[in-house]
Simulated scan of single mutants.
Amino acid sequence: MFTTRKQYEPYVSPFDPCPPIRVKTYVTAPNQYVGFQPPNLPQFPLHEALKKGTLWKIFYDPYYGPYEMKTKGDGQ
């Protein structure tokens, strides 16, 4: 399944005084996966686009922290 949230396992030193974080996550922007902007993309209404930060729906990605759950009210 495709997701913009990626994860990796960093190096853990045996001499690290803190408990290690075994898996770290990061989020990539959706525009990195579109090679070119196709014509006639669906758009948000202008007042909604200002709130979301983009005019085109395929480029919108609400950020969720790693411990947050997605809610149904976000259109996802």
Score class of each variant (00 low, 15 high):
Gln76Leu: 13
Gly35Glu: 13
Tyr33Glu: 14
Val12Ala: 07
Trp56Asp: 00
Phe36Trp: 10
Pro20Gly: 02
Glu9Val: 10
Ala49Pro: 05
Lys24Cys: 07
Pro66Arg: 08
Gln7Arg: 13
Leu55Tyr: 02
Val12Pro: 00
Thr28Gln: 05
Phe59Trp: 06
Cys18Met: 11
Thr28Asn: 07
Gln76Ile: 09
Gly35Asn: 15
Tyr33Asp: 07
Thr71Asn: 15
Ile58Gln: 03
Arg22Ala: 02
Ala29Tyr: 09
Gln32Pro: 00
Pro45Lys: 03
Pro42Thr: 12
Asn31Gly: 09
Lys52Phe: 02
Thr3Lys: 11
Thr71Glu: 12
Leu46Gly: 00
Pro20Ala: 06
Pro10Trp: 12
Gln43Ala: 02
Met69Ala: 15
Lys70Phe: 13
Pro17Tyr: 02
Asn40Asp: 09
Val34Ile: 15
Thr54Ala: 06
Pro14Ile: 01
Arg22Phe: 05
Val12His: 13
Glu48Thr: 11
Tyr67Ala: 06
Pro14Arg: 12
Gly53Ala: 06
Ser13Glu: 01
Val23His: 10
Ile21Leu: 11
Val12Gln: 15
Phe59Pro: 10
Thr3Val: 09
Pro42Ser: 10
Gly75Trp: 03
Tyr11Lys: 13
Phe15Ile: 02
Phe2Pro: 05
Phe59Met: 11
Pro17Ala: 03
Tyr26Trp: 08
Asp74Met: 13
Gln43Pro: 00
Glu9Ala: 05
Tyr60Ser: 00
Phe36Lys: 15
Leu55Glu: 10
Asn40Ala: 05
Val23Trp: 09
Tyr64Ala: 12
Leu50Asp: 03
Lys6Ala: 04
Pro38Asn: 11
Lys72Ser: 14
Gln37His: 05
Thr28Ile: 04
Ile21Lys: 13
Pro39Asp: 04
Lys72Asn: 12
Phe15Ala: 12
Pro38Tyr: 05
Phe15Val: 00
Pro19Asp: 06
Gln32Trp: 14
Gly75Cys: 07
Pro30Ala: 06
Pro38Asp: 14
Gln32Arg: 15
Pro14Leu: 06
Pro66Val: 05
Tyr26Met: 04
Tyr60Gly: 02
Lys24Ala: 08
Gln43Leu: 04
Pro62His: 12
Pro62Ile: 02
Tyr11Glu: 04
Tyr11Met: 04
Trp56Phe: 13
Arg22Pro: 01
Lys57Trp: 08
Val27Glu: 14
His47Ile: 07
Asp16Cys: 13
Asn40Val: 07
Asp74Trp: 14
Val23Met: 03
Lys52Ala: 02
Pro62Gly: 09
Pro10Ile: 12
Tyr60Ile: 06
Gln43Lys: 09
Trp56Met: 07
Lys70Pro: 12
Gln7Ser: 12
Leu55Lys: 06
Lys70Ile: 11
Pro62Lys: 08
Lys70Gln: 15
Glu9Ile: 07
Glu48Ile: 14
Leu50Val: 01
Pro14Met: 15
Gln37Asp: 08
Thr4Asn: 11
Glu48Lys: 11
Val12Ser: 10
Tyr64His: 14
Gly53Lys: 06
Tyr63Ile: 01
Tyr60Met: 00
Gln32Thr: 13
Tyr67Pro: 01
Pro62Tyr: 11
Lys24Ile: 06
Thr4Gly: 08
Lys72Thr: 14
Glu48Ala: 08
Ala29Pro: 00
Ala49Asn: 02
Phe59Cys: 12
